[in-house]
């Protein structure tokens, strides 16, 4: 699925360039615990998290995650935007809960890792 569709399904606000909306995702992982994210071996995973801080982005960078959705209305800060841009990571804000956002994407065909 293209990120463009993910954005529409979750009514998300995007921080990144237009071209990144063409990113393809097959798998998603939802967690507020970055220690868990760092154990994921699957490549090209869409990360859903409510942890809006620099460390969630560093975790994404180390885990080769290039698409991150912040759920529960968490706001992306300027330093997060800067780090994301530096590493080619697309950021999204979504007002839905983690459960709702994950459920919508699962129903639409995005696969779980485990």
């Amino acid at each position: 699925m293209k990120i463009r569709e993910v954005v529409a399904l979750l009514d998300a606000k995007v921080f990144g360039n237009e071209q990144m909306l063409e990113n393809e995702v097959e798998f998603a992982f939802s967690s507020d615990l970055m220690s868990d994210v760092l154990t994921v071996k699957t490549q090209n995973v869409l990360l859903l998290t409510g942890l809006a801080n620099i460390q969630s982005l560093r975790t994404a960078e180390m885990s080769d995650v290039i698409n991150v959705i912040y759920v529960r209305g968490k706001r992306i800060t300027d330093d997060m935007k800067e780090l994301a841009e530096e590493n080619g990571i697309l950021l999204m804000e979504c007002n839905y809960s983690m459960f709702r956002a994950s459920g919508i994407l699962y129903k639409a065909g995005i696969k779980p890792i485990y």
Binding site: K41, Q43, I54, Q55, R58, T59, E61, M62, S63, D64, D79, N87
Partner: peptide, 27 residues
């Protein structure tokens, strides 16, 4: 210094990419 935690790892990642190490090993 949590705001900079990971900056060394980030720099090492860039070096390994330049050396064409495969992405699974880099990760």
């Amino acid at each position: 210094d949590f705001s900079n935690a990971g900056s060394a790892s980030s720099q090492i990642k860039k070096v390994l990419k330049q050396l064409n190490v495969d992405s699974v090993t880099i990760k």
